[in-house]
Design a binder for these strands. Structure first.
Length: 460
RNA sequence: GGAGAGGUGGCCGAGAGGUCGAAGGCACGCCCCUGCUAAGGGCGCAUACGAGCUUAAACUUGUAUCGAGGGUUCGAAUCCCUCCCUCUCCGCCA
């Protein structure tokens, strides 16, 4: 969420910055909503003040045993108007809120302007590309011999799921352990174990809702209703519909009933960052650095047809996620450090990669600046995203009301950062492809061997 | 799943229809006293949003907020309804 003050002071400037990322800010709509809000709010508060002072007088008069009918009829005169105004105010504020909550973050000044990933800027290339004196296979062909089984996964669940067996499953686990240990022992992160099902407030906090609901999986726990309850729900639904038609604020009777709707996390960013939602963190606790290993669930509704082969794009994958909660003045420093922490994993694994700075058009909704790390995949003869490290500045913190107490003792919004360190499935793919041998076996990177019982290679 | 008790400011905790944004305490900030890592005293100290003033801050003022949402009332932290959450005991369970 952007700062509404900034929008009021300088809509055009904000609109221009948002335009660079392909978002058209409806400034006329904003002006209209603001004008409406202002007029209604001023008048409403005026009447509320009048009502409050009258009520106070009534209280005093009653205490003395005096007659209060004159004052009470005066209040009754504007009672209806006030009720209407309060309803109108709520409606316009709700509209304004909805309007604000779908505006993406403004890009940092250093972000290259561009339309798509082709406009991203390469920051550096690290590592040397492996040479093969045989025809390279992709991870699907290599994996088939080693325990990667899409057919069984499809039987159990469906498309875009995978099943790993034997050494491959262990290698997957070894990657997780290696990543976690590195970040905990060498980079100073605190490991956290978090819920994989979260509520809607958490999803709103980090920006997945309300705009990207279709990318998420949701579950309704214990939603078994008796016939009376079903009838009640139907009635509530009608009531809500009527309220909408009359233009009254909707009371969301259904929403409270459905409060046991959970969302499966699309990334650990959601539960981990929401640790500080509605909190005021003491200054000396900053920066907070968390690392978590979680599965991630994405419906990727819009991505069908892309990466259909293999485990590049799955409904479920594991990720080790780095999150930092920092002082606003330290967030860009923190981002560089965090990016470095993710890179270390690739360096230790001996995987060649490059770092790109995303252009305005390719950045995610909540980010002010994003670096992607792309790992070399020999079979695709290209670099593919394996980590995304972003500074969200105060965008998420404002939605979450995540604050710290500054040196003056006043609450101030935090900055939030996160990045994959790394996506485990894709790292497994990269290991398979980069360490493949002519005989179909795969050499295990040295840093992983302690986690593999000393094993040096996976052989068919 | 059953029974009960609760949710109030950064924290603890009173308040049980009127002058309550909310006593008291802790923590924190400024000041005084003391002169040594003790103690005492005074003052201040919620957040969001609006209006005024302003370059801005400060300030003044208004409104809202006592788990959330509805309702009753001239007036709700306090009464009613719905929901959420926490704790205790029992049951079940990895």
């Amino acid at each position: 969420m952007l700062d509404i003050q900034t929008l009021r002071n300088d809509v055009n400037q904000v609109a221009a910055r948002l335009a660079t990322r392909g978002f058209v800010l409806d400034t006329a709509k904003f002006a209209q909503l603001e004008a409406g809000r202002k007029a209604i709010q001023t008048r409403t508060q005026e009447l509320q003040a009048k009502r409050n002072s009258s009520s106070k007088l009534i209280g005093q008069a009653k205490a003395k045993g005096e007659d209060t009918s004159a004052i009470m009829s005066e209040v009754a005169n504007f009672g209806d108007e006030l009720k209407q105004l309060e309803a109108q105010l709520e409606r316009v504020q709700h509209e304004l809120n909805t309007f604000l909550s779908v505006i993406p973050n403004t890009p940092h000044d250093s972000v290259p302007v561009g339309k798509s990933e082709t406009d991203n800027v390469e920051v550096r290339k690290v590592g040397t590309l492996p040479q093969f004196n045989f025809e390279v296979k992709d991870h699907v062909s290599i994996g088939e011999q080693l325990g990667l089984d899409f057919d069984t996964a499809a039987k159990i669940s469906g498309a875009r799921f995978s099943l790993l067996k034997g050494g491959l499953a262990r290698l997957h686990r070894a990657l997780v352990q290696f990543m976690l240990d590195t970040h905990i022992e060498q980079h100073g992160y605190t490991e956290v174990y978090v819920p994989y099902l979260v509520n809607a407030d958490s999803m709103r906090g980090t920006g997945q809702l309300p705009k990207f609901e279709s990318d998420l999986f949701s579950v309704n726990a214990g939603m078994v209703f008796s016939s009376e309850e079903l009838a009640q729900i139907e009635e509530d639904r009608k009531k809500e519909q009527e309220q909408r038609e009359k233009g009254l604020p909707v009371t969301h009777m259904l929403r409270t009933k459905g409060a046991n709707t959970f969302y499966l996390i699309p990334t650990a960013e959601v539960p981990v960052t929401n640790i500080v939602r509605d909190e005021i963190v003491p200054l000396e606790k900053l920066p907070m650095k968390f690392v978590a290993h979680t599965p991630c669930f994405r419906s990727e509704a819009g991505a069908y047809g892309r990466d259909t082969r293999g485990m590049i794009r799955q409904h479920q994958f594991d990720k080790v996620e780095l999150v930092q909660i920092v002082h606003p003045e330290k967030s860009y420093e923190g981002l560089e450090a965090l990016l470095g922490h993710a890179e270390v994993i690739l360096q230790k694994l001996g995987l060649p990669y490059r770092v790109v700075k995303l252009c305005t058009g390719d950045m995610g909704f909540s980010a002010a600046l994003t670096y992607d790390i792309e790992v070399w995949l020999p079979a695709q003869n290209t670099y593919r995203e394996i980590s995304s490290c972003s500074n969200f500045e105060a965008f998420q913190a404002r939605r979450m009301q995540a604050r710290f107490r500054n040196a003056q003792g006043k609450p101030e919004l935090l900055h939030t950062l996160n990045g994959s360190g790394l996506a485990v499935g894709r790292t497994l793919v990269a290991v398979l492809e980069n360490y493949q041998q002519a005989d179909g076996s795969v050499v295990i990177p040295e840093v992983l061997r302690p986690y593999m019982g000393g094993m040096e290679k996976l052989a068919p």
